[in-house]
Nucleic acid binder design. Structure first.
Lengths: 128, 128
DNA sequence: TGGGCATATACGCGCAAGGGCATATATGGG
DNA sequence: CCCATATATGCCCTTGCGCGTATATGCCCA
C-alpha cells in the first residue's frame, strides 16, 4: 500500500457521515441532537462520530452528561487543497483543458490524420 | 439509507483512484501509461477506471488499440460545491466559526489566529 | 447510594469492495 | 490466418465497513 488514503478523503464517502458533517457545520451538537435529526440509531451515530473523531474531522468536548461535537475544518481544508488544482479546470481555465485535449494528435474531431505517435518518452506534465 | 452517497464523493476514497485522478488531471492517458506510473497490475487499473467511468469522473475514447482516458470535471465540481460552505469557514470567515464556538456555554478554543492557520500540528483530540 | 439519562463499546453478521490470476475481447501486423 | 499488443472481465478469496442488538461506562439527581 502506497498511502492509506488520508482519512478525510474517505470520511465523506458515507451518507450518514456526510450528513453529520453538514449538521455540525451549522453549529456544534451533542449526540442526541444528531440522533434525532438523522433518525438513526444512537450507536450508529456514535460509531460514525468515532470515525470522524479519529479522522480529526470533529472534536468533542465533555459537558456533564452531554458530549458536544464540533466540526474541525483543518482536514477538510486538506481535502480542499487536493481539490484546488482541479477547481482551476472549471473556474475559467477550461479553455486550457480543451487546449490540452486538442493538442493531442489523436483524432480529436474526426478526420484527423494520425500524426507523430505520442508514445514518446514519458511526456511529463506540460507546464501549466 | 436516504441517499446512496453521490459517487464522486466516494471515488476519492481509494488511493489508487486518487492517484489515477491526479495523473489524468495533468493530461489524458491510456491505460498502459497509468499502469506504468502506478506500478500496479493492469487489471486493477482497469477496474478502477471502470469505477471512475461509472461515476462519471473519467471519459474514455477508443483509439485503435489504445483507450484514452480523460478527466471529467463535472462530478468533482459537485464535490467542490459540497465543500464550498465549509471552505468559507477557514477562508476569512473563521470569526464566524468562532462566534459559534463562543456561543457555547463554555468553550474557548484558543481564538488567537485570525487568519487561516493552515496546518498547526493538530494532535489528537482531548484524550479520554 | 441507587436509578436513570446520555453516550460509548463489544459482538456478530452480511455485504460490497479491492486484489490477484487467468482469460476473454478487440485490433493491428506479419 | 495466426500472433502480438492493449485493455476489459470473470472467478475466487479476503478484508473492511456499516448495521443492529445488547451491554458497559460516566454522570447527575433524588
Amino acid at each position: 500500500m502506497p498511502a492509506p488514503t488520508p482519512l478525510p478523503f474517505q470520511a465523506p464517502s458515507d451518507p450518514t457521515r456526510l450528513r453529520i458533517l453538514d449538521l455540525l457545520r451549522v453549529r456544534p451538537r451533542n449526540v442526541g441532537e444528531l440522533v434525532e435529526e438523522r433518525a438513526v440509531s444512537q450507536p450508529r451515530v456514535s460509531k460514525h462520530l468515532r470515525v470522524l473523531r479519529e479522522a480529526g474531522l470533529v472534536a468533542v468536548r465533555s459537558d456533564a452528561r452531554h458530549r458536544r461535537y464540533r466540526l474541525r475544518v483543518e482536514p477538510l481544508a486538506d481535502l480542499d487543497a487536493w481539490l484546488a488544482p482541479y477547481r482551476e479546470l472549471w473556474n475559467g481555465r477550461l479553455d486550457a483543458l480543451e487546449r490540452h485535449l486538442a493538442s493531442l494528435p489523436r483524432d480529436s474531431g474526426g478526420s484527423g490524420g494520425s500524426a507523430s505517435t505520442p508514445t514518446g518518452p514519458h511526456t511529463e506534465e506540460p507546464a501549466p
